[in-house]
Write a protein that binds this DNA or RNA. Structure first.
Lengths: 165, 165
DNA sequence: ATGAGTGCAAAAAGTTTGCACCGCT
DNA sequence: AGCGGTGCAAACTTTTTGCACTCAT
């Protein structure tokens, strides 16, 4: 958290995106602007389908097609603004990768909730491992699966529903 | 490799599978037997497509359909004999989860190679994290992405086998 | 004008499922 | 007989792509 100051002076996601696109000879169109805006409107994890849903709610003059959304997500990923964190129900889950510290996730097998956590030792260990294999580490994806506190709580006889075959 | 002795005394994968199936009121059919056999014939990572390919090579009297293979993979996973380790080229990658120690992977972005590694500290850290969140950890999936030693070497002659694992 | 960008519909690709038939138990 | 199991083909899901048109520079 000590580098929040540095983060604070970063440019806005859409500005950052515009810069990236420029390096690729591309432009920040109104469709793309709407998408970045919506994507960074909340810090929640999301998948393409949810983003589509959020976008149709909007009352912008421009409506964006599904194709454009997928294409934009790919660009945002290349631009380093988004990253895929997991895959749930056959859908790729995205999260902001701009202005936020690196972290990993606890994924509840029951309710599907994603909880972020940070652990600096982790990165060190991975760097050590990578070095040992002459591997140039660029990133990682760690999902710890299990049952979240909420879901494992009340096993108080009879309240547990053991459905889900 | 140091605990091969311990592994040796465990029952065979197919026996283990039979036991699991029994608890589900199901049977180890000849098709399933062939599949488990082939799956455990080598310790390499594989995806459904590759397994199908290996199975058509076999000269068994029985031929198994793709559907049955997919259904068997799902059962093997539930039985705890297999687990999904990653997803490459839109395909789910499986590996043995029976008789082998827990480990994680380095995944090369260029050639797709999966390298296994083991690090005991990792589990400790994760247990600590989980405990802090009241999360009941059951497992984890860690993929370290980057460029493998082979691919980062000179451009002389890089790896090129995106389709094989 | 020129090339990037978009929407639409169709295509892909991997995996799942409905269904009729088969074969244990 | 009663079910679980299988093969086949059709269905599905998410994501990608071909194409013709539009638009900013």
């Amino acid at each position: 958290m000590s580098d929040l100051a540095a983060i604070a002076v970063e440019v806005s996601p859409s500005e950052r995106f515009r810069e990236y696109l420029a390096t690729q000879g591309k432009r920040l169109t109104s469709e793309r602007a709407i998408i970045v805006d919506e994507v960074f409107a909340s810090h929640e994890h999301f998948d393409a389908e949810q983003l589509v849903a959020r976008l149709v709610q909007r009352t912008d003059k421009t409506r964006v097609s599904r194709s454009t959304i997928y294409r934009a997500l790919a660009e945002l990923e290349k631009a380093g603004l988004l990253r895929k964190v997991a895959r749930t129900n056959d859908r790729e889950i995205y999260e902001h990768d701009y202005g936020y510290p690196q972290h990993d996730h606890l994924i509840c097998k029951k309710c599907g909730e994603l909880t972020e956590f940070q652990n600096p030792e982790l990165k060190e260990i991975l760097q050590g491992v990578a070095a040992a294999y002459g591997f140039r580490m660029e990133g990682h994806r760690l999902e710890v699966s299990g049952i979240c506190a909420n879901c494992s709580r009340p096993p108080s006889r009879g309240h547990r529903k053991l459905d889900m075959i």
